[in-house]
Amino acid sequence: MSRRELVDAPILDTATGRSPKRTPVWFMRQAGRSLPEYKVAREGVSMLDSCFMPELLAEITLQPVRRHDVDAAILFSDIVVPLKAAGIGVEIVPGRGPVMDRALSTREDVDNLPVLDSEVPEVADGIRGVLAELRDDQALIGFVGAPFTLASYLVEGGPSRNHERTKAMMHGDPGTWHALMERLVPTITSFLKTQVDAGIDAMQLFDSWAGFLTERDYREFVLPYSTRILAEVEGVIPRIHFGVSTGEILGAMSTAGSEVMGVDWRVPLDVAAERIDAASGPTVLQGNLDPALLFAGTDVVRSEVRRIKEEAARAIAAGHATGHIFNLGHGVLPNTDADAITEAVSIIHEES
Rank of each mutant, 00 (worst) to 15 (best):
V244G: 00
G247Y: 04
V244Y: 07
A231P: 13
G281K: 04
A292E: 12
G235S: 10
G281V: 04
L293T: 11
P268T: 07
P268V: 06
R275C: 11
G235W: 09
L250E: 05
P291A: 00
S254L: 07
S254N: 07
A273M: 03
A296G: 14
M261N: 12
V263K: 05
R266T: 13
R239T: 09
V236H: 07
E232L: 03
H241C: 13
G247S: 09
L269R: 04
T283H: 15
L289D: 07
V233W: 03
V267A: 01
R266F: 11
A231S: 15
I249W: 01
L230T: 05
G257V: 01
G235V: 11
R239D: 06
G243H: 04
F295H: 09
A256I: 15
S280V: 07
S245N: 13
Q286A: 12
D299F: 04
A231R: 15
A273T: 02
D270S: 04
W265N: 10
P282T: 05
F295D: 06
D299S: 13
I240A: 08
D299V: 06
P268S: 11
A278V: 05
D270L: 01
A272C: 09
I249Y: 06
F242D: 07
I237Q: 04
A272N: 06
V236N: 03
D277Q: 14
E248G: 13
T255Q: 11
I240T: 09
F295K: 05
A252C: 12
T283M: 13
E248C: 13
I276Y: 03
L294T: 06
E274M: 10
A272R: 05
E232A: 15
R275S: 13
V284K: 08
R275A: 14
L285Q: 02
T255D: 08
R266Y: 10
L285N: 07
S245V: 14
L294K: 03
L250N: 02
P238M: 05
M261C: 14
L294G: 07
T246S: 11
L294D: 05
V267M: 02
T255P: 02
M261K: 08
A279L: 05
L250K: 01
N288E: 00
G297P: 09
D290P: 00
